[in-house]
Nucleic acid binder design. Structure first.
Lengths: 344, 344
DNA sequence: CTGAAAGCGCTAACAG
DNA sequence: CTGTTAGCGCTTTCAG
């Protein structure tokens, strides 16, 4: 025998006022006599009354709710960004739907539909899949619901973006290696990753500008990924490369997991980082700190990424007529212990 | 000039039927003529009609929504559990609110209220704070909303729990160390952690049973935590301990971060794990795999934890009369490279 | 099989 | 300052 939840009507009756007065007390948006107010509040707390979410929503059409899509939470990177988003949004009264798309384009779309159906006031999508961007899917839906895309393919797309200026960090890392005397530098990248493609472009342009020898074998490609498996792949490929002629004396890895794999490869040859090979990772995750030796890594400023994405989203929510824009965040090299001057 | 979203009324008018018929088509719960149905469906998809979430909720009172509370996402542990929950719940049509309490009791309560206000159908709380349990807060609210508490203090509390049988794993780890000849074993624990307290209890009982010397200094206590800071604290304290008389030859750490700190301490003394000290971590996070040497660690079967918690929650949601119950998950030692026989 | 009509619980004019 | 009332968009009897 469960007691039915009290409604505003019950409260009104018990307090001897009309429902509108109760409503006014709840919302505190119109003048109410102090005595009346007190009386109503008393009944409210006595009956543990909570206004019905749906009835309110029906009128305000507000959910104070935001959806966040991530390709994965098991990679030390996104949890930091999500936390940053969560904390920011929380302080603005929003609660967050977490959606793990498992990097599937289909899941991505399915989740977006679910979120819209649930009347979220906005959506942030981390690393959205390129096909969904190219197909116009996001462009279309961003007309219906405030949307921010983070670190995504963005050429000619009319959506709001927050992007890392990958170029700056990549160049800084490469310059640094060059400054240490390295000319035979390899790039370790993921096969189908947009950001890896970007980095390769910068790498090539850098090597060209410096007139360093560009060797095809020095672009080491492994399956895209951000987990333990990536470490394995990377270790295998780097190990092979190190056994070939003209082994690189320095490697720039497109994420920290790859860098760890590279370190393992070096170790397998009974050599060490940074004595025999200088190594720089990307993303500056905790892995870089945990690694032995500690890994120099290009930071993406993940907290900022989350914060800026949240800020942008809130702006769009406030002002839906917002003109799509791109916000760029800097990247820069964090120095640790994995690089050393080239030995003659 | 934004076109207003179409309502069921618009669809009805355009399809030349009544709103009830449209409703029946949408819900597919009453017979409708095939021709009529087709006509209605056509209009629906043409107008891209989506039934109003609130209006529906007002009647069904269902949100297909679940809240998950975590003390943190930046610790390699909870993301795995959350992912497991998310994946399970997703397949049952639920979407998940993620709430980062930052391990604050107050935030915990605030979030719970927010979630209830949003009409979630259930709540899973990972590592809830003990005070909130002891105060009866959770016991009371679990009467109103289906609730599952994971890895929490649970004596005499009438809530649904999913718990790791910490004893089994702890004992297995200690037995293993003893089998390698270690008798001077230290425990590295967090100061205010419930699970650390549990482990200390088992540790003491084990040492007693084996008649191994119990040294007060061998219970090394550092501030509770699950992050980089924990590594620092742990390294410092272990380093100190290693310099005292009768340094331990093996350490059981209450989580993997602590274990890494211990390894660093050993390294700082120009010694190595496992040659000079055997080391076992707890939680079996990726850190254990990433660590050099790879860390033997007691696994909490995090995926199972998430799955079982979700299963339990769904059962309660289906059958609210459910009698509060406790589900225990086993823990066991995962062997890697951080332990070795005691040298004479 | 289909339509009319009565709400669900709340807010927001509008009238006092 | 307060009460009356008309919906918000949908589902669900109840009659046909």
């Amino acid at each position: 025998m469960k007691k039915k939840k009290p409604t505003i009507k019950d409260i009104a009756r018990e307090a001897g006022v009309s429902t509108s007065t109760v409503s006014r007390v709840i919302n505190n948006n119109y003048p109410v006599h102090d005595a009346t107010r007190r009386k109503v509040e008393e009944v409210i707390s006595k009956r543990r009354f909570q206004p019905n979410y749906f009835a309110r929503g029906m009128i305000s059409n507000k959910t104070r709710t935001v959806g966040v899509l991530v390709p994965s939470l098991i990679n030390v990177f996104f949890p930091v960004v999500v936390t940053s988003i969560e904390n920011y949004l929380k302080s603005h009264g929003f609660t967050l739907f977490l959606c793990d798309t498992e990097a599937s384009e289909k899941e991505e779309r399915a989740y977006i539909h679910r979120l819209i159906e649930k009347n979220v006031e906005g959506i942030i999508c981390l690393d959205p899949s390129t096909p969904n961007i190219l197909s116009g899917f996001y462009e279309k839906m961003s007309g219906e619901t405030p949307l921010v895309l983070v670190n995504a393919y963005n050429e000619g797309v009319k959506c709001n973006f927050v992007l890392n200026n990958q170029k700056r960090g990549t160049m800084e890392a490469l310059e640094y290696l060059a400054g240490l005397g390295h000319t035979n530098i390899a790039l370790l990248r993921g096969s189908k990753s947009y950001s890896s493609a970007l980095k390769e472009e910068y790498y090539l342009s850098f090597m060209g500008k410096k007139s360093f020898p560009i060797r095809e074998e020095n672009i080491i490609t492994i399956p895209s990924g951000n987990d333990l498996e990536t470490v394995q792949h990377s270790m295998k490929k780097v190990h092979e490369r190190l056994l070939e002629p003209h082994p690189p004396t320095a490697i720039l890895a497109c994420n920290d997991w790859m860098a760890v794999g590279a370190r393992n490869a070096v170790k397998k040859l009974h050599k060490t980082v940074p004595c025999h090979l200088s190594l720089i990772g990307f993303d500056n995750t905790i892995i870089a700190e945990l690694c032995e030796p500690k890994l120099s890594s290009v930071t993406l400023n993940m907290e900022d990424l989350g914060r800026v994405a949240s800020e942008l989203l809130l702006e769009i929510i406030e002002k839906p007529s917002f003109v799509p824009q791109r916000r760029y965040l800097p990247t820069s090299l964090v120095h640790r212990e994995s690089c050393a001057p080239l030995k003659e």
